[in-house]
Simulated scan of single mutants.
Amino acid sequence: MDMHLVIITEDMAGERLDKAIAGLEPEWSRVRVQDWISSSRVFVNGKVKKESYRVKVGEKIEIDVPEVEDLDILPENIPLTICYEDEDLLVVNKPRGMVVHPAPGHASGTLVNALLHHCKNDLSGIGGVARPGIVHRIDKDTSGLLMVAKNDLAHHSLVEQLKEHSITRLYLAIVHGVIQHERGLIDAPIGRDPKERKRMAVEHRNGKHAVTHFSVIERFPKATYVECKLETGRTHQIRVHMKSIGHPLIGDPLYGPVKNKYGFEGQALHAEVLGFTHPRTGERIECKTEAPEAFADLMEKLRIEKT
């Protein structure tokens, strides 16, 4: 049993109970939440309510989330591009389109399935049965570098470095519109979008501190190629921040234009550089990988586009 407590805020008020809860966590589908409500696992001020109940400001919602049954995650011989590896950890270059860990609808073909085959039993257990070795994630359609811990010592150290913002994370992105200045800094808090709670947004009332630095690499007639450096690591941070200054990522299904005129599937975002302190030796490790071929193809289209 995992009991969650939520106090209804103004941005949630008036929503159906099932929708309000489903918007709290990406893994909580509305169907799953409705099952919890019908099973009397959700309480509003201590009482069971119907899924259609409209929540009110200040109400206390208790959610008794049932324990997830152990997934039968099988090792799969999926090729991995490994940029660094030793007895404590590895850094992999995840391709676009690969899900990081198993979840409903993605029971196989994930990075975790590939890691179980490559590492055998040498993965930290802190992430739980569904996420062995996983220290941090990038979205399915974001390519690039990820750290994976082989033991708990490495896992704890890398997580602490993430919390301390001492890990170097540089991303390449292609955004809509021409950015006129050479570099910039976006310091804007990020939280759940009050209008669509499966998305994130710049939220000055309830958001968490978030800072992104960016610099221009190349300009096209109607787009810009940029490098982004994360000072913090909020969910969808680069995607939200670039949209907030009027330059959403090309291909982004959540934050970009409805019409995807370039035919680029998923956001044009690549985790290019990952630098960290080795948990055991104290050595500074830095890995770098080129953007996928799809980026080059997209840029060729952008170069010949008319203004």
Rank of each mutant, 00 (worst) to 15 (best):
G125T: 10
V148A: 03
V57F: 15
D122E: 13
L90R: 09
P132F: 13
P104M: 06
W36H: 09
I82G: 05
W36C: 06
P102L: 02
E62K: 12
V135H: 05
D64L: 13
L71P: 10
P79G: 04
K49H: 07
W36V: 04
I73F: 00
G58A: 11
W36T: 08
H118Q: 03
R131N: 03
L146P: 03
V44M: 10
V48M: 08
L145F: 11
I126E: 02
I138W: 01
D72M: 06
K50F: 09
E76Q: 15
A130V: 12
H117M: 00
P132W: 14
Y53G: 04
I63T: 00
G105T: 02
V99N: 08
K56D: 12
V65W: 11
D86S: 08
S108V: 08
D70A: 12
N45L: 09
S38M: 15
L146Q: 02
A103D: 07
V42S: 10
I78G: 00
G97P: 08
E51I: 12
L111P: 11
A130S: 13
S38V: 15
D35Y: 10
K47L: 15
V92E: 09
A103G: 14
N121V: 04
N121I: 02
K49I: 04
I73G: 00
S108Q: 12
P79L: 09
V65N: 01
G109F: 01
R54N: 02
R137G: 00
C83E: 14
H106C: 00
V68M: 13
R96I: 06
D139W: 07
L89Q: 09
L74G: 01
V55F: 11
R131M: 06
D141H: 03
H106P: 02
V44R: 09
A114N: 08
K140G: 02
V100Y: 00
Y53Q: 06
E69F: 07
V99Q: 03
K56A: 10
R41V: 07
D64S: 12
E59V: 02
L89D: 04
S38C: 06
C119Q: 12
A149R: 10
W36E: 04
N45R: 13
A114K: 04
K50A: 07
P102S: 01
L123V: 04
S124C: 08
E87I: 07
G58Q: 13
S124R: 10
K94D: 01
R41I: 01
K49S: 08
K60H: 14
V68E: 14
I134F: 05
G97V: 00
V91G: 02
C83T: 06
A149L: 12
N77L: 06
A114R: 03
S124K: 10
I73Y: 00
L115Q: 11
E87D: 15
P104Q: 10
E51F: 14
F43A: 11
L71H: 05
E69P: 00
V48P: 05
P102F: 01
T110D: 09
